Simulated scan of single mutants.
Amino acid sequence: MLILEEMQARGHEALTLLHHAPSGLRAALAIHSTVLGPAIAGVRLGAQDEQLAVRGALALSESLTLKAALAGLNYGGGACVLMMPEAGVDDPHAREALFRALGRQVRPLESRVVLTEDIGVSPADIAFVAQETPATLGVNTDTSSVTGYGVYRGMKAAARFALGSESMRGVRVAILGVGAVGRTLAGHLHREGARLTVADRRPDRAEALADQLDGVQVVAADQLLDSPCDIFAPCAYGHSIRSEDVPRLQCRLIAGGEHHPLTRRGESAVKEAGIIYMPDYAINAAGLIAAAQGTTPEQAAERVYTIINRITAVAEQYGKPVHIVARRMAERRIDLIGSLGHGK
């Protein structure tokens, strides 16, 4: 993996490796763009090696740039991927030390980056970061549940374009990943009468959800791609849909809360397969909007609904795939606002 070549190809500004031995901090911090403002960096924590952490930070930070731009926020995109310490973080003091160490390491960069929660990280963790640096967002926002509700509202807008109606009653939705975002999405869809099939790399989570919601079918994670459905909703950790697995998909629309479920090659493959793909940065922005602007969950989700409707209207008008329209809309705002330069 040639890091600088990949950064240049994606347009990244910086990649920093963070380390603090006593706390077990090992992290990759990527800043993709600060054209619109400081880079909002989603902080993730998981068991992974250095290469996966770096790849994840580069991909996630680019997604955050597009998300912030499309949502009309004056922020750029970043990502901070933490590798799980060998001793774990079950000890509350160890968890505090880990995130306070992160905050202290990021302090010199606080004019360029703002940290907020992502997978494996809670508002309480960001509160620890905030003890060491003011460069934080989302301490008082349950971003996962807000994001899940926003995905639900965005899915309805996308379904109106892809399926001819935004009603979810009787619509077959396959959800891959039932963590906080996936569970919230499933709950809203279930209340509207959608027919749900769910899977998770941790089968116990999928079974627990099925126990809570009547009529939910559970399948193994590696079998969900083969499940007949109208909408496939990836809500896992990233790159859930490999390019070579696209022919297995039996859906008409991909719309979920997961960051970068497809590579660029995968996007081309679903286009060739005639599947509509609503990109992650368009549909999963509600949590970021709520954290950045202090809006209510309902207001943030309605912003997502409006954004998706705008994307589909342009796609229909010009006969272009929605994922291409979404990217061009985000990039156009970055170009236009970036052309203004920095105010005095």
Score class of each variant (00 low, 15 high):
204 D>W: 13
232 F>S: 03
185 L>D: 09
143 T>K: 04
214 D>V: 11
297 P>F: 04
242 R>F: 08
2 L>P: 11
313 A>G: 13
29 L>D: 06
158 A>W: 07
96 E>M: 12
185 L>H: 07
153 R>L: 15
78 G>E: 01
122 S>T: 15
143 T>M: 11
122 S>I: 00
25 L>M: 04
1 M>I: 09
314 V>Q: 14
234 P>N: 11
46 G>H: 10
271 K>I: 09
40 I>W: 06
48 Q>T: 03
269 A>Q: 12
324 I>R: 13
276 I>T: 15
166 E>L: 10
108 P>M: 05
303 R>T: 14
250 Q>T: 09
135 A>T: 01
139 V>Y: 04
115 L>T: 06
93 H>M: 12
130 A>Q: 14
283 I>L: 07
29 L>M: 13
126 I>L: 07
199 A>S: 05
221 A>Q: 04
97 A>P: 08
86 E>W: 01
200 D>M: 05
54 V>F: 10
242 R>E: 13
256 G>D: 00
23 S>A: 13
282 A>F: 03
79 A>R: 04
232 F>R: 02
228 P>V: 07
118 D>R: 00
68 A>I: 07
50 E>Y: 13
224 L>V: 14
147 T>V: 01
342 H>P: 00
311 I>L: 15
343 G>M: 11
252 R>I: 11
292 A>P: 00
87 A>L: 07
244 E>N: 13
269 A>K: 14
273 A>Y: 13
77 G>S: 11
44 R>W: 03
145 S>R: 12
45 L>D: 09
